[in-house]
Design a protein around this nucleic acid. Sequence first.
DNA 1: GATGAATGAGCATTCATTCAT
DNA 2: GATGAATGAATGCTCATTCAT
Lengths: 223, 223, 223, 223
Amino acid sequence: MADLPRHLARGAVGRERLSREALASYQRDRILITATGVFAKRGYQQTTVEHIVDAWGGSVGSFYGHFDGKESCFLAVFDRVVEQGRQRLAGAVAGEESWAAQAYASLGALIEAAVAEPLAAGIILVEAPSAGAQARKRYLALLDELAARLRGGRSERPEALALPETFEQAAVGGTAYFLQQRLLASEVDSAAELLAETSQVVLEPILGAAELRRLGSTPALAG
Amino acid sequence: MADLPRHLARGAVGRERLSREALASYQRDRILITATGVFAKRGYQQTTVEHIVDAWGGSVGSFYGHFDGKESCFLAVFDRVVEQGRQRLAGAVAGEESWAAQAYASLGALIEAAVAEPLAAGIILVEAPSAGAQARKRYLALLDELAARLRGGRSERPEALALPETFEQAAVGGTAYFLQQRLLASEVDSAAELLAETSQVVLEPILGAAELRRLGSTPALAG
Amino acid sequence: MADLPRHLARGAVGRERLSREALASYQRDRILITATGVFAKRGYQQTTVEHIVDAWGGSVGSFYGHFDGKESCFLAVFDRVVEQGRQRLAGAVAGEESWAAQAYASLGALIEAAVAEPLAAGIILVEAPSAGAQARKRYLALLDELAARLRGGRSERPEALALPETFEQAAVGGTAYFLQQRLLASEVDSAAELLAETSQVVLEPILGAAELRRLGSTPALAG
Amino acid sequence: MADLPRHLARGAVGRERLSREALASYQRDRILITATGVFAKRGYQQTTVEHIVDAWGGSVGSFYGHFDGKESCFLAVFDRVVEQGRQRLAGAVAGEESWAAQAYASLGALIEAAVAEPLAAGIILVEAPSAGAQARKRYLALLDELAARLRGGRSERPEALALPETFEQAAVGGTAYFLQQRLLASEVDSAAELLAETSQVVLEPILGAAELRRLGSTPALAG
DNA sequence: GATGAATGAGCATTCATTCAT
DNA sequence: GATGAATGAATGCTCATTCAT
C-alpha cells in the first residue's frame, strides 16, 4: 500500500473521527484513480478485477470492500471523472456573465480537461459507451445534459431559433466523436486548436461568427 | 438446417464446382444474417458462439469452418452491413447529377436503411464501437470515409470553404450519435422526418438553406 | 452493543475481578444466544461470521476474541443448548423415584424444550449433523448417551431384556428423526401430543403398556 | 479418460444411434460413480467440483456439459443410488407373496446393499441430510416413502393397529440412524446380524415375534 | 480489549476453440 | 465437410481469519 499523505498519517489532529472515514474514502479514491488508467488503457471488457487490484497494490477482498464489483467500480470511475469535469465547468463559468461567454469557457474547460487527462477523457468518450447497459445509459444522459445546456443559448440569438430541433444533440455527439477520435489516435493537438475548431461547429451556429470571433480573441484557456 | 433454394440444391447443373463454392457462400451468408440479429439484440459481449449457432441451426464446428471465431464473425457481419449500405448508396446516387443532390439522396438512403433494418443499423452504430479494437477501428474508418465524401461538397459552394476543418467529422459523428440514440430508445421516427432534421445539420452548412429547401421538395425517399 | 444489566454495569461492587471475567462470560453468552437463532434460521453452512456479528451487534475482532472461529462458535452453541437440556432433564428427574417415572418425565422435558425453543432444538436435530465432522461426532455422542440412559431401564422389567441390542439406539434415533421432521415442517404440535406418541414408541417396549398408561395419567408437563 | 467397454468402442454395431447417446449416458454414469465415492469420503460441503473432475479424469467443462453444477450432480448421485436400491427392493420382493415376507426381504435387501456399498449408503444416510435444502427434502421424502410402505403391514395383524401413529416414521428414522452410525464408525457388521437386530425393532411390533422368527429361519440374504 | 479494514486462497462457473469421429 | 463433446484457462466473487490501530 502506498504512503499516506501527511494529513492522513497517524498522529494527525482529530484522528478519531477523520481516520476511519477519511482513510476509507482515501483508499477508495486511490482505487478509482488507478482504475481510471487501467480501464482506459485496457478497455473495460479486457480489464479484470485482478488487473485493477494488481495496479493498485491492494487485495481482491479489499477491492470488494469498496465496490460491489467490476461494473460498480467502473461506474464510480465514470462518476468521478464527470464530477471533476463539472467542477472545472463551474470554475470556468464562474467569472463569465453572458451565456455566450459561459458556453465558450465551458467548451474550453472541457477540452482542456480532455487534453490534460486523456485517460479520464477516454473513460467518458471511449469506454463508457462499451461498458454495459448502465454505463451507456449514463453516457447518453451526460451528453443529453450537455445538449440541454447548449440549448439554453438559443434565446440569446433570434437566428438560432431557426436551427433544427436536433442541432444541439448532433453538436454534442459530433464533438464527442471528434474528441474520441483524437484520443484514440493519440493525436491530441493543443487545447487551443481543438477549441477553435469545435467552437466553430458547436457554437457558431448559435452565437454567430462575429460573437465567436470576439470570444476567441480573449484568452480562454488557463493552461 | 433450412432447405436450400432450388438453384443451390444438389442435382443442379454444374454442381461440382458451383455447389461447393456457392453452398459455402450461401451458408456463410445465412450465418451472417442470423448473427446480425443475435449480435444486435444481445450485444456483442453478451453473445456467445453458441447463441449464434443455435439461432442459425448449424453446428459449432461448422461455424468455425466459416469463420475464424466470434470476432471474425462480427467483423464479417459489420462488413456485410456496410456493403449493403454501399449498394443502397450507389443506387441512390445513380440518378443524381449534382453533388448536392447526390449527398441529399445518400443521406436519405442511409436513414431509410437504418429505419428499415434497425438491427443492421445497430451493428454499425451501437455494437461496432464496443466490439473490440478491430471493430472500433473499422467503425471509425467508416465514419471517416463518410466525412471525406461529405467534404467533397465544399468545392460546390465557396461559402463552405470557410467551415472549420472538423465540420464534416463532427457532422458525421453527430448524425451517428443522433441515430444511435433513436435506435437505443427504439424511437425510430419516420425516415422523412429524420432526413429533414439531419440534413439541416449535416448539409445546410455546406449547401445553404435555399438549396436544401429545393432538394427537400423533391421526393427523395423510396419507401 | 446492548446495555448491560445492572449488576454487570461498571461501578458495580468488586468490579476488578468480577467485571472482566463476568463481562467476558456475559458477552460470550450473548453471542451464543444470538448465534443460536442465526445458525438455526440460515443453516450452518449458509451462516457467515459476519451474519452472527451483525445480529449480535459486536465486531468481528471481538467475536474472535471469544471463539476460535465459526465452527468453534457452533460447537459452543451446541454445547450450550445441550447443557440447558441437561438442566431441564435434571429438574424433571428430581422429583421422581422410579426409573420409569424419571424416563417419562425426561422425555416430557425434552419434548417440552423442543416445542418451547424450536430454534435451539433445530441446532441439535437439524444443524449439528450437517455442521462438520466435530459437530456430527457430538451429535452422535449425544444420542448415544440418551440411548445409554434409556438402556438403564431394562433392568426394571424382565421382559425388556428380550429387546434387541439395538432397540435403544433405534428408539432414540427414531425420536430424533421424528422431531426433526416436525421442526422442519414447522408443524410443532402440542408437547402433550408429541409425548403421548413418542413415549409409546420409546418407552412402551421397555415399560409395558400398563405402566405407561399409568404414567400418562399423571400431569407430566409443566407448561 | 478410461477405456470404453467393448460394446461402446468404435466399430460396434449400430454405432450411429448408440454412439452419441449411449456414450453421453455412459460418461455421465462414470461421473456419478466417481462422484459417489468422492462425496461420501469427503462430505458434500468439502467436495469441490475439481475434486470430482480430478477423480474422474475428465475436464471441468465436460462436467458442466453433463450437470448443471455441483448440487445438481449430487442430486443425480442420490437419485442413482436410490434407483439402485429400488431395483434391489423389487428383486427381493419378487419371489415373496405375503406382506410379511416381502417386508423382511426388503429390509434384508437394503441392509445388504448398505453393507456391500457403504459409500453409496453414506450418500443417502449421511450426506443427503447435509447437502442443501433440495437434498434434505429428497432424503425426507425417501424415508417417508419407506415409512408408508411399512405402514401397509398393519392390516395383516390386528395387534399392529394399536401401534402409535408415529411408529413407522420412528422405525424408519431409527433404522436410518442406526445404520448411519455403523457407517460412520466403519463398524459394518455382517448383513445377517444387522438384519436380525433391525428387523426386531422395525418388524416385530408389526408382525409379532413368532412370525419374525419364522422368517428369520429362511435364508433371506443373497450375499 | 475492541475494532473493522485488509487479506488472499479458494470456488463455481463460462465459453471460445479444438479435434476425434 | 459436418458434428458436438471435450477442453481448461480465465473470471468475478466470497468469507474465515488476521492484525495494525
